[in-house]
Design a protein around this nucleic acid. Structure first.
Lengths: 207, 207, 207, 207
DNA sequence: ACGTGCGGGACACCCCGTTAGT
DNA sequence: ACTAACGGGGTGTCCCGCACGT
């Protein structure tokens, strides 16, 4: 008798793992990886140290999981998928940039910065495992931008003398820089201006 | 005779303070502010906790001093002064960007990122004192770029329809983003490409 | 076979906690709460900082536990219980006072003062949490004395014009003061004299 | 020329010393001797560590000076002098006790306790130098009470079978205990009651 | 007589990780 | 799969005291 009285008392390892990773993402996003506390994470996730160390070998592995299982998919969903089959990448990118600034302004989320960039700036020089994972995400980002530009050239919406790789790397870098600008200035107007300038640059690449 | 036989035994408070700030700069540059250790700093500076606490009220104040006394002057010297009385800012900026990439490649320093940007990304959301100081530096940076562009417009080297403020904010943001790209990718070629694309953008602004 | 060979290797959290609290009581009794060192406590208890911090949130909480789990029961056992069902409180109190002086003299414990009073004098003005807990103990003490006096009035062993509350508060206060006298004077004769005077006062209250 | 431009720039060692002792008294009164900070003292006194260590060999000596130069005279002035040539000590003591409670209530000073008693409770078991000095003050206090009682017996205002020494030691101890009661209870009513009971006791000693 | 730079060492806090146990 | 007791060690803070200098 008395089976499953409480819903969460049944063992659901995947759900537990997920809760941990999500709590870790939130903690690292707020306080950085080094500054983030495992104690805070287990408390926020409503579990214990034992569970955490059962699922992850240590703080480092947990950080890797945050990159792989949260930040990567987020990037894919939010930034890469919209460009998937566009033949007019310039218009699409301008739309994406504008949308980003609008959303950031409304949600106020820009003050915390980009989760990917935050981790990259903090951990890339300190931990090769982080650097590899984060670099792979950035590379995918640049590739997708470059592919879209190539498609644009093929379809005539982008000037044929544009070097997709070069432009893609600038676009990604600028995007990160602009987000960082918002974080320190806490001034949305500045982000708008920089995004408009980036839009002008894109405009100059139209075929 | 026998004056100042031992260099450090005489009281030289300014030199001591300087040693501390410089050691702190190096430590925070390597491990971040939160991750940086005061123990490491006092060891590197060859002084004691007592001396540190005498010169600075705490880690926070020490961090502020690093911004004010190291990073600020560094920015001024390295990035702002060259633009001081240029009437052809586009050429000058292209030169600066190229020089930055070359130097970064040779010294390998790019893997650690920009000291200003590192601190800004880490501490802006966590500490208002840091954010104010760092934002002031960024603002000065953007102002100087905008002033140079305005001078370029006046002298005809820059297109008259360019909005100096907008472009300046994009340039600074891109610069930060590119440096960050190098940090994570550890791929100098990527930085070169992005810098070239930025140079192309500047080229499109010539009058 | 071979069950519990080593007594302390098995997990006995209650015993560990108890050891910590007792060591803390001894340390705070000797050096005061502020002057007491957690390092000393963990050493005396034969445990580590980690264990201490697991059982108590900090020094303050440990101090509260000392009050609740050591000093309170000590007071109850040593001073309050003997009065529980006395109908001749004056005789009983005189006996208690005499016994206290005798014991203090033989054990020499009076030089350290009353644990309750020590903490109260040190921490009451500095920490409301301490003050509340300690005041509750004193209040219980006074209540018990007043109740005993009331019972004495009812049974005719105490003069009917005695105000139990007033007398109780004087008795407790005097007791504390006398113990403090011993602490500073380290002169047992003085405590005897003051106790005798207090006994004379009680005598004058007989019905 | 230029003599005594600033009033305090002239060397006034006695005044400096006095400022230090007074600041130390306030600090130790608030935070205890062990908990009190020399840094706080020098700041409050508006001087520097150098001056402090010039006048006093260390924290201990400073504490001794507080006892000798502040607490002792305070005791003499406030508690002993009024009894000097009284021939009716009971009335006078009752007046003193009542006045104490009234003043304590109005000034709220009772929450900090008696400076003499505070130091005595904290330091007597830890430092023989303190204990000697403080015990001497208590002894003087008891002596003065005993002398007044003796004078009362001689003049017929006190019962001739009263043992002055015994009563004096109880009176001083009770006084300390009552003050301590106020400190922990922060309840003035309790102090009033205990003082009234003490007054009743004195009343019973009238000749 | 007094100011200042500085030494060296505690302090409480809190961290990440391990392991005995369920 | 998960809990909770526990181990050590590192953190920033801040202390008291000394000694050089004026």
């Amino acid at each position: 008798m008395n089976v499953n009285m409480t819903a969460t008392k049944t063992r659901t390892p995947e759900a537990t793992r997920r809760k941990i990773v999500e709590a870790a993402f939130a903690e690292f996003y707020k306080n950085g990886f080094q500054g983030g506390s495992l104690n805070q994470i287990v408390e926020a996730a409503g579990i214990t140290k034992g569970a955490l160390f059962h699922h992850f070998a240590g703080k480092q592995e947990l950080g890797y999981a945050v990159v792989d299982e949260i930040i990567g998919p987020l990037l894919e969903q939010r930034w890469l998928k919209p460009l998937a089959d566009s033949t007019d990448p310039i218009t699409e990118l301008q739309r994406i940039f504008r949308q980003f600034v609008d959303e950031a302004f409304q949600s106020g989320s820009y003050v915390q910065g980009c989760p990917l960039n935050n981790l990259a700036q903090e951990m890339s020089p300190l931990d090769e495992g982080f650097r590899n994972r984060l670099d792979r995400l950035y590379a995918a980002w640049r590739d997708r931008y470059a592919m879209a530009l190539t498609a644009g050239i093929a379809s005539g919406t982008v000037r044929s003398d544009v070097a997709p790789g070069k432009v893609a790397s600038l676009l990604v870098a600028s995007q990160m820089g602009i987000w960082g600008t918002g974080k320190t200035s806490q001034n949305n107007e500045l982000m708008v201006q920089a995004c408009e300038a980036l839009g002008d640059y894109l405009e100059s690449l139209r075929g």
